[in-house]
Design a protein around this nucleic acid. Structure first.
Length: 295
DNA sequence: ATAGGCGCCTGCTGGC
DNA sequence: TGCCAGCAGGCGCCTA
């Protein structure tokens, strides 16, 4: 089960805490400001990013900056929205207009008199920029089928029902944005460790107590990460250019071979749902029953 | 219907 | 020293 070859530790994932950090920064920087111009780069992002659509936000003022899962929602006048996903390597920064434009800049938004610009940069282009008009369009986009509840709004009974409805392993379930929005690879591993649940266990095998433990773990881990302003690897920077600290708090993610902070057994690395998965083989309850242990 | 696998994309790294 | 295969992963799409 455990891979012998070490996987390269070079991750970069804006998940909920990183997006929340960006949103908080953007709020301070953008509220009340007017988009006075938009430029769309030639390269296509994950979703096509159209010039015609982009033009719709020109001349409009920023009313609010919010987040849904890993999506950033900038609300402008007359229910116009700029919806941003950072993908794997997306960055949003505020720069003076004369600052040199970094490589892989796919969107430039002039602010007010044009002295400053909001810029979207994304080397891997897994991110996206979209303009939407009307709350109906936004609601349809975030339809329940595509995006589940926010982790902090999970109701214990509902969560348990939906978690036990799936045959998939807990790791795959946590990565599914329809079950819970905003959890990615890092916080999935950290939450499962916190809940002392083996990532390969099936969702449907969870007892009510285990489901609740997992729900609380997700909330605790995400809150802690938000407090630390998210995780910073080289690709993730905050809107104002400063970085987060949560990478110092990792219990299992990227800790392969290091002692488990709870029981000192070496942290194992495997691959689940096509993703590198870190866990403690001793204190994360194994497959079958909560008492069994892997190995 | 559900679950799993693949491909997109660039940058970095480890091994030769 | 330099080169390059392989790995990193969120999400949409495809298949079984």
């Amino acid at each position: 089960m455990v891979r012998k070859t070490p996987l390269v530790y070079n991750p970069t994932m804006p998940e909920l805490p990183e997006v929340e950090t960006v949103v908080r920064d953007l709020r301070g920087l953008l509220l009340g400001r007017r988009i006075s111009g938009v430029r769309v780069g030639p390269k296509r992002l994950r979703q096509p990013w159209s010039r015609t659509r982009a033009a719709l936000i020109v001349g409009r003022q920023v009313r609010s900056v919010g987040r849904r899962g890993k999506w950033i929602c900038v609300e402008l006048d007359d229910a116009h929205y700029l919806i941003v996903h950072l993908g794997m390597s997306g960055q949003i920064t505020l720069k003076p207009a004369e600052a040199p434009r970094a490589r892989h800049t796919h969107g430039v938004f002039d602010l007010d008199d044009g002295a400053e610009q909001l810029r979207f940069r994304d080397p891997r282009r897994f991110g996206s920029l979209q303009v939407m008009v009307g709350t109906e369009e936004v609601d349809a986009f975030f339809d329940e089928n595509r995006l589940g509840p926010e982790p902090f709004a999970l109701r214990p009974g509902d969560w348990q029902r939906r978690l036990t409805a799936t045959q998939r392993c807990l790791k795959a379930a946590l990565l599914d944005q329809r079950l819970v929005a905003g959890v990615g690879n890092i916080y999935a591993d950290e939450s499962l460790w916190e809940a002392r649940l083996h990532p390969a266990r099936r969702g449907c095998d969870s007892t009510p107590a285990e489901a609740e433990r997992l729900r609380r773990a997700i909330v605790a881990v995400l809150r802690r990460a938000i407090r630390k302003r998210g995780t910073s690897f080289r690709d993730f920077i905050r809107a104002n250019g400063s970085s987060g600290d949560y990478q110092k708090e990792f219990r299992v993610y990227g800790q392969t071979g290091r002692p488990c902070p709870r029981c000192a057994a070496p942290i194992a690395l495997t691959r689940l749902a096509g993703r590198a998965t870190h866990y403690c083989p001793r204190c994360q309850a194994g497959i079958g029953s909560s008492a069994s242990r892997e190995r």
